[in-house]
Design a protein around this nucleic acid. Sequence first.
DNA 1: AGGCTGGAACTAGTA
DNA 2: CTTACTAGTTCCAGC
Length: 812
Amino acid sequence: MTTANCPGNEELDFRLIFGEDGQQPPLGPADLETDENTSFYILNVGQPPLVVSQSHSLQRHGGPPPAISPYLQAHHKTYEPIYELQDSKYTPTGVGGGGNGPPKTFECPSIQITSISPSCQQEMETSENEMRAKGPDGDYHDRPLSRDHLYLPLDHSYRDSSLSPSPCSSLSSRSWFSDASSCESISHVYDDVDSELNEAAARFTLGSPLTSPGCSPQTGPHEEVWQQQQQQQHHHHMSPCHSPRTSVTDENWLSPRSPSRPSSRPTSPCGKRRHSSADICYLGSLSPHHSPTATPGPSPRGSVTEDTWIGSPSMGVSSFQCCPSEADIPSKTRKTSQDCSGAIQSGKGDLGMDDSGNVSPLLDSPAEEAMHGLKKDGSGEQFLSVPSHFTWNKPKPGHTPIFRASSLPPLDWPLPNQYGQYELKIEVHPKAHHRAHYETEGSRGAVKATSGGHPVVKLVGYNEKPVNLQMFIGTADDRYLRPHAFYQVHRITGKTVATASQEIIITSTKVLEIPLLPENNMSASIDCAGILKLRNSDIELRKGETDIGRKNTRVRVVFRVHIPQPNGKVVSLQTVSIPVECSQRSAQELPQVEKASISSCPVSGGEEMVIIGSNFFPESKVIFLEKGPDGRPQWEVEAKIIREKSQGSSIMVEVPPYHSKTVTSAVQVQFYVCNGKRKRSQSQRFTYLPVRVKQEHRDDLDSPAVPPMSMPLVHAASLVCTQPLSSPEHSHPPDGLLSSSPRGLAAGLHPLQAPCAPMGSPTLPHLPHLQAQGLNAPPECQMPFHPGPAATARLSYPPSMTFYEADFFCGN
DNA sequence: AGGCTGGAACTAGTA
DNA sequence: CTTACTAGTTCCAGC
């Protein structure tokens, strides 16, 4: 969807599409309130409440419509056709569809392009013919596709195509999206569907996956759903497209690759596909033998069946994203951010498009922009960034995490980890390294904890009945937390796995659902979740994908729960793990900072700071830097390493003096450990304090009220004076700044005086987006948070020295 | 036999 | 244009 640099393509003028300023059109999903009064998912209200068919393909093959989780359904944001059960309970409805009367969905804010690249026309015609061939009885409408409309990918087309069994897909979504349609129609539809929403909410409460499969053997909607989900999985296993390596697992089924690819190493001996035009010009082809993505050949893994391709939610859009122009080339490899400030660089992240294309929360604060800028600075990686004036609506600070059961928040929607008496906490965090496996590999096992066990997640404050813990793989960059484009959670099964789980797809992201049972104290050991790496080339070729895969190998594990409330609504909480490095190479080579002894010091510098981490070598350097608004370093200095007090897992440095001694407020800078060119740790935040703040800060640091095991994070102290709290949406603090104890902040306390709340604790309900950025600290500091005893002993650190968790700021 | 691991070969892309 | 390097992906072998 990147259009800024599409010579062969007609440029999209988003200002025209979304109105001036890039504002989204009225009633765009993200624009809708999420409170009790409205739903930002109104677009899906027309969907069948409980069971919907998942994919075109399944239907096309005459198979029964597999069930999907109500969660899944609820998450289907719907720029999609309405489906009706195949057994004549449901058939696609929508404009031109088999339904009589108007569709009960809302037109999405799809982007329409008023021309089509000639190079794609032929394929378009082919596709069109196929579409027509389906006829009204099929999933497609006989209404010819409008060539005058190019439906850009809603987002994550790869995942949409490959992952989602969602009914949302689809071809019909194009037809359904009438030429004449617009969001204007929402208003009159909404009234009609409101009651349906309520109904769906009621059903959710009764029959949602909140009831785990392992729970009471009651029959009912939930059990039905579970069974249907099992059937669904079974169905996929019965897919005609089997992997030569393994059976068709969910993973395979979710694979983006076309079944027609002859080899898992499709092109070069190493399977690297080139971004050739031949690969690129796939658009418009709806042939089941042609991947909607650029993958030219079949996958031996049989990853994606014809069914999944056809039924993929993005088919309705991505396959018609014509124009094999530069837009098809991995846009991340282009350094455009500087050049096209006037043009919109689109894509999931940058435009704030969420998984299904919804305009989603986009953090657009100055700080956020600064963070965007930070990326540009990287040596070699220049990420497309969002011009500051293209800021979509985002969740309003202060939103409560209360949602209708039928309109659960998108996966990239910020959620607190605590609300009221509820708290979702990660009691044991995953290890900082987990080598993800490729599709061409076997599983590399479940994510483990440092202790050797597995991550443990617990829901505190609710013990009434089972709820499902959702888990997915999120990003770990400096932008807002969202599903990771290049990694998916992978369900691990086997005798070594004790925790039940099931996979569902939520807007093209694989989500593992794990029951939290009262008998287990609403706690679960996550021994059933591995991480699958998707090939960068597959992802980057997606339309609309702006995340770059290269060196984007860090993830965070995201956990969510939706706690049912008596009123039929749910409280949605989310917590995220520490960043997890998933690359073999990176894990071996990149230095990693786990914690530091101090988070700040006076501008005069000179204090000793011990950095604890891994992959520290004698040649390692510690660099302090400050970046300007454009993300470029304005000040950079190497800290003096005290070699005699450094060793393998720790480095002691002398904090260099700040370049200006006259600052009147705290200054946020960064430091990182560098093992050489391109071998940097993640940047860590550090704060230089003006003199007047110093004493106060030191007092706090020395305060015995701060228990070693529950130490606020490194940057906590920096929050004191740097960011106004009154309007975080307007003065978005940098990520690290978000991590201070909201509890303390909310209470007006110095962060270090506050109890140790997880970073981003929802006790600051007006800062939900902060937590969503994923920089909340390990709630209970499972990481070695206390002063490392060994290190302390060996290196004779001051007894009072306390280490602060690295905040894993990714501002490289 | 199959899953899990660690290691490394190999290649495309980049500097 | 060539070369060296980097990082991603695949394969192999062992447990």
